[in-house]
Design a protein around this nucleic acid. Sequence first.
DNA 1: GTCTATAAATCGATAGAC
DNA 2: GTCTATCGATTTATAGAC
Lengths: 208, 208
Amino acid sequence: MAKAGATSRPTRIQREKRQAIFEAALNVFSEKGLRGATLDQIAKAAGISKQNIVYYFNGKEAIYSELLEGLLEQWVSPLRDLSEDGDPMEEILTYVSRKIEMSRDMPRESRLFATEVLHGAPRLGDMLNTDLKALVDEKAAIIAGWMVEGRLATIDPHHLIFSIWAMTQHYADFDLQVQAVLGPVRSDTRFEDAEAFITHMLVRTLRP
Amino acid sequence: MAKAGATSRPTRIQREKRQAIFEAALNVFSEKGLRGATLDQIAKAAGISKQNIVYYFNGKEAIYSELLEGLLEQWVSPLRDLSEDGDPMEEILTYVSRKIEMSRDMPRESRLFATEVLHGAPRLGDMLNTDLKALVDEKAAIIAGWMVEGRLATIDPHHLIFSIWAMTQHYADFDLQVQAVLGPVRSDTRFEDAEAFITHMLVRTLRP
DNA sequence: GTCTATAAATCGATAGAC
DNA sequence: GTCTATCGATTTATAGAC
């Protein structure tokens, strides 16, 4: 029969198998990185034989690339949803809140993207220079507009976005270190505490 | 003759060779990660044969571990130097300044530590739970003391330190993304701009 | 100390039976 | 579609000459 990855309509079992492989691959890749992960580990995690995985995907890199690609839009959606029409402070704090939620609920995805960018982002291709830059420029322009109108204190909007990325994603990517430093007592409220901290910092910085 | 890595006094040539290997390994490991790096790549970068590298180190993991270990104290030194005796705001801004300097001048080291923590920090061992936690707790107590004295606005000192780590290291670890988003025009002043931004944000947050 | 040669292990990928 | 068996490439590590 035709290879499963072809353009023809996938059957139910094909979709389920591919989904199981993606789920297992997300676990393994986010822990070990692309080169650190082996097909055996993914196969074991998915409960599927290694050879069967090869039947569904064109090799290890294909799993990785398709996984990354499939997560991209979801990953930038919080920033995409930042709207010119809302209240400036509320829009920015909602953005922070959604980013903290993602760090709490999608730490594997966060680490996947972090490792990819850290190691040169060869598979994100030119997307950083084109799509991501365009998105950030667009939202930075909105924020700059609010500042011109006097609705926010003036500050560099690009670095504001970088600082939000950095602070929120830190709690996913370096969660191990955060938990180690906070200790067992305080680490169970780390995401709420982080959001409260970042919110407080941004309000004091951005209030006109 | 005895193996080079032994406890006996190393000769000059041994030190130089080991240093060249460390330098090459830092390049390769920070770009590819532990498992993505090969001895061949390190050997080529160091201008030494692969077999000769094995003569000086007990395998790839030994190079990695010793490299990490050797950088540890330097890596935390900016925080260690934060002194109770100085002016509170000045001490914190000096800390930020030194961290930004490290992101600018030691991005390879930053990415090395980032990858290690991101992937579970198996080689940093219990150091995070003991040494690092003790250091952060000590400095957080100093900062908390300043707040009690009314010399700084009250805010969670642990999350303050996390946010400084996150924002400063972001410019080393994700420099590729930062440069892509800022574009060729603005990215050449990114470290100065970042320091100015973070400083401004912290002053507004911490001023009593 | 440095080299050539090669062993040994790991891993991605393929062939072919059912 | 899933399996067993195995190839081939890569890579770590070792043996031994010089």
